[in-house]
Structures are given as structure tokens and as C-alpha cells.
Computed example of a mutant assay.
Amino acid sequence: MAALIAASAVRTCFGDGDRTFAGLLRGRCGAGPLRHGDPDRLGVTTGYHAEGGGDRAYLAGRLLEACLSEVIRESGVDTARQRVTVLVATGLRELAAVESWAVVHSPPPVGRLDFTGVVAGVLPGAAEVITFAGACSAGGYALGLAQDMVEHGEADVVVVAAADGMTESMLAMIGQVGGERADRVRPFDRDRAGVLLGDGAAAVVVTDESWTGPALGRLVASGLSCDAFHVTAPDLEGICRATAEAYHRAGRDPSQVDLVVAHGTGTALNDPVECEALRKVVLGAGGDPLVTGVKGALGHTSGAAALVNLDVALQCLATAAVPPVVGLREPLAEGTGLRFVRGAPARLPLGLVQLNAFGFGGVNAVTLVEAL
């Protein structure tokens, strides 16, 4: 049994969901000079910064609050009438607030280092608030749990949310791992230089199929794996297992998928492995989907990445338009046979969409959604 998605919202370097999708369709790149930290010391000169500025210490929470407020308003979720659980996915929580401690010498309140207070301010009366610190696939894991909860009657509504802002710790890690300094993310490009971070948040409302209000799409199934293959390197077999599980749980064949919204980090290791997994599981079953990705335009939004991909997929389903992979000029050799959307949007009706999200430590999440 599938679940329904009643509302969705994002905040990225382009703004809200409508502005984000419009920017993607135009092929815009949101990268700009790094606005905080010492670029020379960090080894990173570029970031995909959210609009608005303000205190970076609690930027993730502010972006999350905006997304939560939007989906609650649009869906009409009411904790007085419904059993509502909130799942918050993140990679870093409010780590920027901890980093600021060293500068201002004033420790942040412990209660502000996760998002429970943010949720309570927007949705008082939620039955429980659970935080997933699951690296870059955290949102995908939360979607899988949300579907299980509504299908098994453990909640009437599950609000799945995610947020991450750039931190100097993560920037420094990227600066140490990479070779040349990337000026933008180039997913699946043979000359890609590596990943860059983007501020981002997202929220969706998941409910069962008895929902009588407006709905944006159907959450069909999720496939998850935690292969613990390597601290940072992806494992082909782990990704293939997650992909195959998603289709098995959905009762669908990979040949039926119309679009893949890829993880596409623009790194030396992720992109070839992700391409090979698509070739093995999807193309190997006779599939021939379009492939797009958003990190060239929006940067890597860490724990919010899966839900950002979901919002883009819902917009694609609603408009029959698929944005190009921003920054992709010449596909890498491992991408041979994959139909990357390049240069301009593709326009065609869509049914089934696959969403990829892969994180450090081999935590992989593949989600299937479709039009109603």
C-alpha cells in the first residue's frame, strides 16, 4: 500500500519551491563566493548560500521553520484532530551554533542544538518529534519510516522535514579531501572537481490513502541499505540493493521508471558508481529513463538532499517538465547509455520517478514516487 504526499516545501539558494524550480528550469547556478569563514584556511572559496543572511548559528532552524509553516498551512494538518508525528532529517543539526561558541565564548543552549523547539513553535501538540542524523540520505530514510507509520496506523499524518546549513567543519573537510578547488558542482561531468555545500531545508506531509484533501503525488516505496562499506566511498552493491528493494517493495519493474532524480554530487567516486548502479539495475531491466540532478544548481544540501529531490520530482510530475543537470557539459564515460537532461528542460508526461540519496558510511536510500 502506498502513501500520499499532501504538501511539500523547500528553501534553497534560490528561495522557495516555485523559485527553486524556475531557477532549475532556466539552468541557473546558485554558486557564489563563500560568505563566512576563511576560504584560504578552509580550502573552499565557493558556496550555495540561502537568501536572507542573518546569524548563521541557527540558519538551519530558520529555514526549517519556514518550510514547516508552509506545509502545515497548505495541508491543514491539525494536531487537535490528527495523530501527528514529525521526523526531522539532518546531517549536522545546529553545528554552526557550536562552532560560534569558540568565537563568542557563549555556549548555545543545549535545547537549541536540535529542532524540537522549532517544531513545537510551528506544530504544538505533535505526538513526537524524532531527529535522524543520517548524513546525506537522512531524508530518504525518514520518508521510508513515514510511509511505514501511516500504513500501519501508527500515525494519521507524518510530517517529514530536513534542514542543514553550511558549517566550517564540513567546509574544511571538503577542502582537505578535494584536489583543485571547485567553483561549482558539475554532476556527472568528466571534468568535475568535487562537491560544494548548499544551505537547504524541506518538509513534506505524508498520510495514508484515506486522505481527502489535496495531494501532490503518491509515495510508492523506499529501498534502504546500510552497507558500512567505507567511511566516505560508495559501494556499488549497496546502492544496487537499495534500488532493487524499492522496486520489489513497490511491486514494480525498473523498466517502468520515467525519470531518475540522481544524487549526483560531482565527486570522483559517487558519480561513476551511481551511473553504474543505474546501468545495472534500471537499464539492465530494460529501462530508459531521463536522468537529472540538482546539485549543480543548488549545491549539496546534506540531510535535506533527499527531500529537495522529492520536491523537484513533484514539480516535474505536475508540470511535465524536467530541468537539465546544471554544470554538465561532457558526461563521464561511466554514464554512457544514460539519458541525461542537458542544456534545456525536457518536456514530456511522467509517471514513475526514482529519487536517489546516498550518505557517508554507506547509508543509501532510493525512493519511488508517482503521479496520482
Rank of each mutant, 00 (worst) to 15 (best):
G198R: 03
T116I: 05
W101R: 00
Q147I: 05
G134P: 09
D156W: 05
A161S: 13
E237V: 13
P107E: 03
L113C: 02
L196I: 09
G144A: 15
A126Y: 03
G117V: 09
G139V: 07
C226L: 10
A221H: 03
G121K: 00
R181P: 03
A203V: 05
V177Q: 13
A202K: 03
V158W: 12
D164S: 07
L171G: 11
T232M: 11
F132L: 15
E154A: 14
P107W: 02
A163H: 10
L236I: 10
V157L: 08
P187A: 08
A161Q: 02
A155M: 06
E180G: 15
V177D: 07
D164P: 09
A163D: 04
I174N: 14
A135H: 08
E180P: 06
R181F: 04
A142K: 04
T232S: 14
V205C: 00
E180H: 12
M166H: 12
L145V: 14
G165C: 15
A193R: 11
G200R: 00
A203P: 05
V103R: 10
P107Q: 01
V177H: 11
G217C: 03
T207I: 06
H105Y: 05
A127D: 13
G153Q: 02
P187G: 05
H152T: 15
M149T: 07
S225F: 06
R186K: 11
D148P: 04
H152I: 06
A161T: 10
V177T: 14
A138E: 02
G175Y: 12
G125K: 00
A172E: 10
L219W: 14
Y141N: 10
G117C: 07
P124W: 02
M173C: 14
L145F: 14
W101I: 01
G200K: 00
R218H: 08
E168P: 12
E151C: 12
M149G: 01
A133N: 09
G139N: 03
G134R: 13
T131K: 00
F229D: 05
R190N: 05
D114L: 08
T212H: 06
S100D: 14
P124G: 08
V177N: 11
A146M: 14
G117W: 01
A155K: 02
Y141G: 06
D208E: 10
S222V: 11
A135Y: 12
A182N: 10
L196P: 00
P124D: 07
E168L: 15
H105C: 08
V205S: 01
V103A: 10
A135N: 04
R181L: 06
T116D: 03
D191I: 01
M170Y: 12
L197A: 03
S106H: 10
A202T: 02
D164K: 08
A162D: 09
C136Y: 08
V104P: 01
V185P: 01
T232Y: 01
D164G: 12
C136W: 07
G223F: 09
E154H: 12
V160T: 10
G194I: 14
V119K: 00
A102S: 07
D235R: 10
G179V: 10
V103C: 05
A193F: 06
F188P: 06
G117M: 03
